[in-house]
């Protein structure tokens, strides 16, 4: 564990070095969130009755999404992991006394956390200061906040476990870019990255709520905003745990098979 906290620290300090990058990133995400909220507010004005969430919930959803963007977006890619598989330097990794699956899992998690740690606080502070109706609200109570934090953690793990499948698939495919883009796009869409799940038409939503993607950003963002509360929140966290376990199991199985192949073929 010590190794990974060191990794986190290095990445964090590294990203601090680039202050202009950090500021630019903040400005971008802030503007992005602002534009999204403006668009939703236009739809809200058009027909408040058809709005499936409370407007303030949507606002919180969007700000939280921007604040934790780097935690959940599928298209962030660890080039050194991908390169180690494609170029075959994974053979060296196998010599080290660390389980490769765990190692990569922690590396990706640490990287995503380091990126988000720098960005989330300023965005959230802004989001609490901007005037109504753009202002973000706190969750209804402390319990909800706690559930949210738990759910963020689980969602991050689900995202990482899912992206591990993409890395492992590199052992088999030769042309990863297209497939990767495709999967990233689909998963971001069904995780509520473009439009929150409550805005989906009822039949699509009914299916989407059960997919592994629903266990990604969808769950913590809606728990925070209070759109999912009480027993539903517990059920949601249950769904996250289920998908996390399933993805971990599948990932580990695929990994051990892929590694056997590497050994047989000599990398």
């Amino acid at each position: 564990m010590k190794k990974y906290s060191a990794l986190f620290r290095i990445r964090f300090i590294n990203s601090l070095q680039y202050r202009a990058a950090a500021l630019a990133g903040l400005a971008t995400q802030f503007a992005w969130g602002f534009m999204e909220i403006s668009a939703f507010s236009a739809f809200y004005r058009a027909n408040p009755a058809a709005f499936p969430m409370e407007f303030s919930q949507t606002v919180s959803y969007i700000w939280m999404q921007q604040a934790f963007l780097t935690l959940f977006m599928m298209w962030f890619w660890e080039y050194d992991i991908a390169a180690s598989i494609i170029e075959g330097s994974i053979a060296y990794e196998m010599v080290r006394p660390l389980d490769i699956y765990n190692r990569w899992f922690c590396q990706i998690t640490a990287n995503r956390l380091a990126r988000a740690a720098l960005r989330c606080a300023p965005i959230l502070i802004f989001a609490f200061l901007v005037p109504e109706p753009y202002r973000m609200t706190l969750p209804p109570d402390a319990a909800q906040l706690f559930l949210f934090l738990l759910s963020v953690l689980l969602a991050l793990c689900v995202v990482v476990a899912f992206s591990m499948l993409m890395y492992i698939s590199l052992f088999y495919t030769l042309s990863p870019t297209g497939v990767r883009l495709f999967i990233a796009v689909i998963s971001d869409f069904f995780a509520g990255g473009i439009v929150p799940l409550p805005f989906f038409p009822a039949p699509v939503r009914a299916v989407a709520e059960w997919l592994p993607f629903a266990a990604m950003q969808n769950m913590p963002l809606r728990i925070y905003s209070g759109n999912i509360a009480g027993m539903d929140a517990f059920a949601g966290i249950g769904l996250q745990i289920f998908w996390l376990a399933a993805l971990l199991a599948v990932g580990r199985l695929m990994m051990s098979r892929a590694l056997k192949r590497v050994i047989v073929q000599g990398g």
Binding site: Q17, R19, A22
Partner: peptide, 16 residues
Amino acid sequence: RRQAGFGRAVKALFSR
């Protein structure tokens, strides 16, 4: 000049 260490890295955010 790039500074080593955590505290200095934070400081470098504001003055360089």
